[in-house]
Simulated scan of single mutants.
Amino acid sequence: MAITDLIGALERADREGDTAPLPPAAVAALARAEATLARWEAADLLDRQAAATRTYLGLAASTDWMAAGEFDRLLDTLDELAMYRQQIAAIGWTEPFGVAA
């Protein structure tokens, strides 16, 4: 076999449909890995959402005068909370909001 034959084989493998399908065990392993990564992603988002919630509650608890910077931070935290909620819903994890999937 010549080197040019090997290069041709590599080029053909780059085209869609020129690879063999994965065995069922490999497909199952990939599905388990993706599910684990999704749980880690959801846990990370929930941790960040919890931190933002604590920040929001701390700022909102102020009954006295609030400095302009604090009020801006309160509004930014509300935006951050909305973003986390959208990201968590986008990965299909709706349990924290009591929404049926």
Rank of each mutant, 00 (worst) to 15 (best):
L78R: 14
G92T: 04
L37E: 12
A2N: 06
E70F: 08
M83S: 11
D47L: 12
M1L: 05
Q86V: 08
M1P: 00
P21Q: 02
T94W: 09
L37P: 02
A67Q: 09
E70Y: 10
T36P: 00
P24H: 12
L46D: 04
F97C: 04
L59I: 08
D47V: 07
P24Q: 15
L75P: 01
D18L: 06
M66T: 09
E80T: 14
L78P: 00
D79W: 05
L46I: 08
L45Q: 07
Y84V: 01
T55L: 13
R15M: 09
A43S: 15
A42K: 03
A25D: 14
I88D: 03
D5G: 07
S62N: 15
R15Y: 04
D72V: 05
A28W: 00
L45K: 04
I7P: 02
A25T: 09
A25S: 13
A100V: 11
V99A: 09
A35P: 04
R48I: 01
A90S: 15
R48Y: 07
A26N: 03
G98C: 07
L81C: 12
A28D: 03
D72L: 11
D5N: 12
R48P: 00
A31F: 02
T55Q: 10
A50E: 14
A100T: 14
D79F: 06
T55M: 08
G17M: 06
A89Y: 06
T77Q: 01
A2E: 05
A51R: 13
T36H: 14
T55D: 08
A42S: 12
W40S: 13
L81N: 05
R54W: 02
S62D: 15
A2D: 05
T77H: 00
P23F: 01
A2R: 06
L78E: 15
V99H: 04
E11S: 10
L30F: 06
G17S: 05
I3A: 11
R39C: 06
T4P: 01
A82L: 09
S62Y: 02
A20D: 15
G98E: 06
E41T: 13
A90G: 11
A33R: 12
Y56D: 01
A60F: 14
P24G: 09
T4R: 10
L45P: 01
T36K: 15
P21L: 04
D64V: 02
G17F: 08
D44C: 04
D76Y: 03
P96Q: 05
D72Q: 13
A68K: 10
A51H: 07
Q49F: 11
Q87I: 00
E41V: 08
A35Q: 12
T36Y: 10
T63I: 07
A51Q: 12
I88C: 03
L57W: 01
Q87G: 03
D14V: 08
D76P: 01
D64F: 02
I7K: 09
P24C: 11
T55I: 06
